[in-house]
Design a protein around this nucleic acid. Structure first.
Length: 390
DNA sequence: AACTCGGGGCG
DNA sequence: CGCCCAGAGTT
C-alpha cells in the first residue's frame, strides 16, 4: 500500500530538489555534479559512514591525492591504505575499501553500474550501494542513513527506533517511493543535506525547512522527540598492557590481527588484562606466543586513557628490552613519523615515550578547532619525507 | 536482533 | 558527560 499519494510525492520532490538546488554545502566530493567519478563518490561515502563531514574532508583529500583512481587503489598495499586511514576509525572500512577495489577491477573492470553488483562487494551495505548507484550512476535507488531516517521519521511521523526492523523497513519503503527517477542522486542528497543542516537532531530549524508545512511531527508538536535516541550498550572498560621497546629513538610495533579493535593496524605488542593477571607475566607470554618476541618486561612507564564509543580504554606501557632479535613482522616507528598505520590511542602512548617530560596523560587532550587540521598537516609532511622505518 | 567496531564535535 | 555521526559485518 503506497503511503504516498502521487500528488503529495511530486510536491515533496519538487520542494526538496528546489531547496537543494538553491544552495547546498560545497563539499569536495560534489565538485563535478555531472559525470561524477564513481570512485570518488564511493570513497566519500565509505569515509562518511558514522563519521562527520568535517572529520572526513582532510582524509578524503589526502587519500585521493595518494590514490587518484580505482586502479591506483587496487594496486596499493594494505598497510599503506590503512596508514592513510589511521585516526579516522572503523578500520574495517579501509580494509574493505581495498578489497572491494580489487574485486571490482577483477570482476567488472571498475565499479559496476548495478545495485546488486555493488551490493556484492565488500563494505557495500544497503546505504552505500544505494548512494553510489544513485549519485554516481543515476540509478533510482533509495538511501536511508541517519539523516534520512530522521527526516522521514519526522515528515511522516514514524514512531519507534529507526534501527528496529519494522521501522527500518517502513523508512526504506518511504525513501523508495520518494526517490526521484530523473534525479535520484540529487533527491537523496537533498534529504541528507536537509537532515544534516536543518532537520537536525536536538532542535530542528523548521523555519528554514522547505517541507515544514507538510511535516507530520511538527503538526503534532513532536519534532524534537522523533526519532528516539538509539539505544547503545554500556561502555565497558578495556585495559591493555603494551610492550614499549625502544631502539635508537624508535619503538617496536607489530601488526594486529584483522578481527577486533584496531584490526589490521600496527601497535606495540599488547595483551588484554583480565582479573588478577600480572601485567608483566601476561605481556611476556603473549609477546612470545603471538609474535615470537622474547621480552624482558620492566616497569610501567606510561599510561593513556581514552574514551571510545563502546570502550573505556586504558593503555599501560611497560618498558621492555629484547632478549633476542625481533621477528620479521616487527617494525620500528621513529619519533615524529606520522605516516604509519597507528590508531590514535597508540600514537598517544608512543608520544609519551618521546616527550621529554615523560608525563603520564590521564585523559584525552582537550579538543580545539584546528587540531585535526594540524594533525593532518603533520601526517602530510611526514609522508612527503617518505617512510623512515628502520 | 544484538554486538562490535573509532574518534571527534557539540550542547 | 551523553549523544550523534552520509553503516557494515558477524553472531
Amino acid at each position: 500500500m503506497p503511503a504516498l499519494p502521487p500528488a503529495r510525492r511530486a510536491a515533496l520532490r519538487r520542494r526538496l530538489l528546489a531547496w537543494y538546488d538553491a544552495g547546498h554545502r560545497d563539499l569536495p566530493w560534489r565538485v563535478p555534479q555531472r559525470g561524477a567519478d564513481p570512485y570518488r563518490v564511493w570513497l566519500a561515502e565509505v569515509m562518511l559512514q558514522q563519521t562527520q563531514v568535517q572529520a572526513v574532508i582532510p582524509y578524503y583529500e589526502r587519500f585521493l591525492r595518494r590514490y587518484p583512481t580505482l586502479g591506483a587503489l587496487a594496486a596499493a598495499r594494505e598497510e599503506d591504505v590503512l596508514a592513510l586511514w589511521a585516526g579516522l576509525g572503523y578500520y574495517a572500512r579501509g580494509r574493505n575499501l581495498l578489497a572491494a577495489a580489487r574485486a571490482a577491477q577483477a570482476r567488472h573492470g571498475g565499479l559496476p553500474a548495478s545495485l546488486d553488483a555493488l551490493r556484492a562487494l565488500p563494505g557495500f551495505g544497503p546505504y552505500t550501494a544505494g548512494a553510489v548507484a544513485s549519485i554516481a550512476f543515476g540509478i533510482a535507488a533509495p538511501v536511508v542513513d541517519g539523516n534520512v531516517a530522521r527526516v522521514l521519521a519526522r515528515l511522516f511521523l514514524v514512531e519507534g527506533e529507526p534501527a528496529a526492523g519494522t521501522v527500518r523497513s517502513r523508512l526504506w519503503a518511504l525513501a523508495g517511493e520518494l526517490v526521484d527517477p530523473a534525479r535520484p542522486g540529487d533527491l537523496n542528497q537533498a534529504l541528507m543535506e536537509l537532515g544534516a543542516t536543518v532537520c537536525v537532531k536536538p532542535a530542528p530549524r523548521c523555519g528554514r525547512c522547505p517541507v515544514a508545512a507538510r511535516c507530520a511531527a511538527r503538526a503534532a508538536g513532536r519534532e524534537r522527540a522523533i526519532p528516539p535516541a538509539r539505544g547503545r550498550p554500556a561502555r565497558r572498560p578495556l585495559e591493555l598492557a603494551c610492550a614499549l621497546v625502544e631502539r635508537a629513538g624508535a619503538v617496536l610495533v607489530v601488526p594486529r590481527p584483522a578481527a577486533g579493535l584496531f584490526g589490521g593496524l600496527l601497535g606495540p605488542p599488547s595483551v588484554e588484562l583480565a582479573g588478577e593477571d600480572d601485567p608483566a607475566t601476561a605481556l611476556a607470554r603473549t609477546a612470545r606466543e603471538a609474535h615470537g618476541l622474547a621480552l624482558a618486561v620492566g616497569e610501567e612507564v606510561a599510561r593513556v586513557e581514552r574514551t571510545l564509543t563502546h570502550r573505556a580504554l586504558t593503555l599501560r606501557g611497560y618498558r621492555c628490552t629484547l632478549r633476542a632479535g625481533p621477528p620479521a613482522a616487527a617494525r620500528w616507528v621513529a619519533r615524529g613519523e606520522e605516516g604509519v598505520a597507528l590508531p590514535t590511542a597508540f600514537s598517544a602512548l608512543l608520544a609519551t615515550l618521546f616527550s621529554t617530560s615523560r608525563r603520564v596523560r590521564c585523559k584525552n587532550p582537550h579538543s580545539r578547532p584546528g587540531r585535526l587540521a594540524d594533525k593532518l598537516a603533520r601526517q602530510r609532511s611526514s609522508l612527503t619525507r617518505g617512510s623512515s622505518s628502520v
